[in-house]
Amino acid sequence: MTDLSALAADLPVSTEPVHRIVVVAEPNELAHHLQAWEQLVEQAAEPNAFYEPWALLPALRHLRGGQAVRVLLFFRDSERTVLDGILPLFGRSYGRLLACLHTYRHRYCFSAEPLLRRGRESEVAHSFVAWLRQFRYPLLSLRGLDAEGAWLRELRPALQRCGLRFLPAAPVQRALLPLEGGLEAFLERTPAKKRKEYRRLRERLAGLGDLQVDVLRPGARDLQSWLDAFVALELKGWKGREGTALGSRPECRRFFEETARSAHERGLLVMMRMSLDGKPLAMLCDLLAPPGRYAFKTAYDEDYSRFAPGVLLEIENATLSFQDPRGVEWLDSCAAPDNALLNRLYPGRRSLSDLTICPQGLAWAGLMASSGLKRLRQRWRLEEAGRTA
């Protein structure tokens, strides 16, 4: 089956359905379920800021391009008032022979964990697997999932019970700052030599003029000036040169500003700025989804890179995170797994894993062959590297 438009209907998922799955294709239609969605966020087993209404709707409006995005809504009642889960997917066809579903992740989405109502995780997983069996997609690729989260914990046994084959990928880890240990423990984990180096850099920077660190206050009316300054600072750096900055594409800037405004209205936006004589040297933008906080975007002035203003601001941000009164328990760096700086600065780790599901036997055989070939190529590269070393 390659035509995803056939999914946009109400679908019973099994002979004894736990949920009625509604598949929504358009942001305006999805907004009709806003009340149930907001209630789900309040009762979610695990947070995901990027799938909350104020972040996902702007992404669907501005970033999906030509992708056939489908958002699965798991309703427990026929009146569609009790929502137990929300899972965004998109379809991709590879010629005429294969159609795959993938978790929906745009370039600014750093978590693909579905929103699941606390206590209903297993039921949602069962309903999802029954839905998969009904439509029999050759492949489903779930990427960037919390390897220790509720979704994978419940989905794997549900797949096994129904006889659906799946292939997990080896997890990767990215830096995470747990806040339960307190500020003193965080500072003590930073080597004394590094703390001395950071103090020296800050003192040298302060010697050049009036060095200030400002925080955007909840409800502040100058949000737009903060957003404009951030976009301009990011455009000035390497992301601007490579065309990947928010300001490089109008649709990316529209997404950023709409998401930031919506988060600010809800008290879920954190922005910080380090400036010298009123000139921004480094800025960051975090998104709150208590008990979590996500390091969404950062930018710094490369003309001052010898003073590491981005690092200094990260330290300020980590320090203030311990004083946040909004029930935050951890700060996700949202960084690449090989980010040496944040791996050194943040002692915790979040394990992320991919899961490929093959409801059809032929797709499984192809996946096994592809996986075996990949491992063989990796072995050849290692042997070749050993011969030339």
Rank of each mutant, 00 (worst) to 15 (best):
L246S: 06
D214W: 06
Q323G: 09
A232Y: 05
R80Y: 03
A263T: 06
Q212A: 15
D222I: 02
R92C: 10
E316D: 11
G386Y: 07
I21A: 04
L115E: 04
E42G: 13
F74N: 01
R189V: 07
R174K: 10
R107Q: 12
D3L: 01
L72G: 02
M368K: 15
L176R: 11
P47V: 06
L268D: 01
R379P: 00
E257P: 01
G267K: 08
P53I: 02
R80P: 00
G163E: 00
P12D: 10
V13K: 03
A44S: 12
E314Q: 11
P171S: 07
H264M: 03
Q39M: 15
K374N: 13
E234S: 08
W151Y: 09
A308D: 05
R107F: 11
V270E: 12
P171V: 03
W54Y: 14
A263F: 02
E302S: 10
L97V: 07
H106P: 04
S111I: 06
G247E: 05
C109K: 07
A260E: 04
E251Y: 08
L72E: 01
P325A: 13
L60P: 00
S371H: 13
P347N: 12
L30W: 01
G95W: 00
H32R: 15
V231F: 03
Y108A: 13
S305R: 13
E148K: 13
D210H: 14
R174H: 13
A44N: 04
H126G: 09
V82Q: 14
E38L: 14
R133N: 08
Q360E: 14
K236M: 10
R195L: 03
S262A: 14
D332G: 06
Q134N: 08
G85M: 02
D10C: 12
V69P: 03
L73T: 03
H106M: 09
G181C: 03
S333W: 02
R344E: 15
P337L: 05
